[in-house]
C-alpha cells in the first residue's frame, strides 16, 4: 500500500470531497452536523419541559388546561404542523429525484403550513393576554403557569419562524434551480425536528 496522492482539485477544496473514514455513520458532514445541532436544541426544549414538570410537581395546584385553552384550535394547529411534515418529506423526495418544480411547490406548501401555525399561535397569545395572562401572574393559578406557557410556546414559535424563513430561502433557491437534494434534506431535518418538539409540548403542556 502506498500513500494516496491527493488530486489538485481535491486540495483546493480541502474539506468536502475526499475519501477517508466516514464511518460509523456514513453520512455527509452537513447532515451529521445538523443532527448533532438538533440534539442540543432538543435538549434545550427538554430543559424547559423538565423545569416545567419540576415546578408543576412542586406546586400545590395547577389550572385545568381545557378550561384555559381552546382545545379544538390547538388540535387543529397540531394537525396543520404534522401535515406540513408530510409535505416536507414529499419535497425532499422530489429534490433527490431532481424534480425541482415539484420540490419547490411542496417546500412552499410546507412554509405555508408553518405560517398558518404561527398565525393560530399568535391569536391564541392575544386571547390569553386579553384574558389577563402575564409573565408575572395569571387569573388561573400559580404564576409560573403562564410564564412557562409564554416561554415554551414562544421558543417553539420562534423555531417555527426560523423554519419558515429557511424554507422560503430553500424554495427560492429551488425556483432558480440552485438548491441541492442535500440542502433540501438538511432543511427538512430541521423542519421535522420543530414538528417533533411540538409533539412533546402538546401532550405535556396541554393534555396532561
Amino acid at each position: 500500500m502506498t500513500t494516496v496522492a491527493m488530486g489538485s482539485s481535491e486540495t483546493a477544496a480541502p474539506v468536502a470531497h475526499w475519501q477517508g473514514g466516514v464511518s460509523p455513520f456514513a453520512v455527509s458532514w452537513q447532515k451529521l452536523m445538523m443532527w448533532i445541532f438538533l440534539v442540543t436544541d432538543a435538549l434545550l426544549f427538554a430543559g424547559f419541559l423538565a423545569s416545567y414538570g419540576f415546578v408543576r410537581l412542586a406546586s400545590p395546584a395547577w389550572p385545568e388546561q381545557n378550561e384555559v385553552f381552546p382545545m379544538l384550535k390547538i388540535a387543529a394547529m397540531t394537525f396543520v404542523l404534522i401535515t406540513s411534515s408530510a409535505t416536507m418529506a414529499t419535497a425532499v423526495g422530489a429534490a433527490h429525484r431532481r424534480d425541482l418544480k415539484r420540490a419547490m411547490v411542496f417546500v412552499a406548501l410546507t412554509a405555508l403550513g408553518g405560517l398558518l401555525f404561527l398565525l393560530a399561535q399568535a391569536t391564541e397569545w392575544a386571547t390569553l393576554i386579553a384574558e389577563g395572562a402575564r409573565l408575572t401572574h395569571n387569573p388561573w393559578g400559580p404564576a409560573p403557569f403562564a410564564a412557562f406557557f409564554f416561554m415554551i410556546t414562544g421558543f417553539h414559535g420562534s423555531h417555527v419562524l426560523i423554519g419558515v424563513i429557511l424554507l422560503t430561502v430553500v424554495a427560492l433557491r429551488l425556483w432558480r434551480g440552485r438548491a441541492t437534494g442535500m440542502g433540501v434534506e438538511v432543511a427538512g431535518l430541521y423542519w421535522h425536528f420543530v414538528d417533533v418538539v411540538w409533539c412533546f409540548i402538546f401532550p405535556l403542556f396541554y393534555l396532561l
Binding site: 494516496v4 474539506v15 475519501q19 477517508g20 473514514g21 466516514v22 460509523p24 455513520f25 455527509s28 458532514w29 451529521l32 452536523m33 448533532i36 445541532f37
Partner: peptide
C-alpha cells in the same frame, strides 16, 4: 459541533 463532526467524518485513510 465542528469537533464531533470532524472527528467522525474527516479522518484520513486508515485512521
Amino acid at each position: 459541533l465542528n469537533f464531533v463532526t470532524t472527528i467522525l467524518n474527516l479522518r484520513t485513510k486508515g485512521m
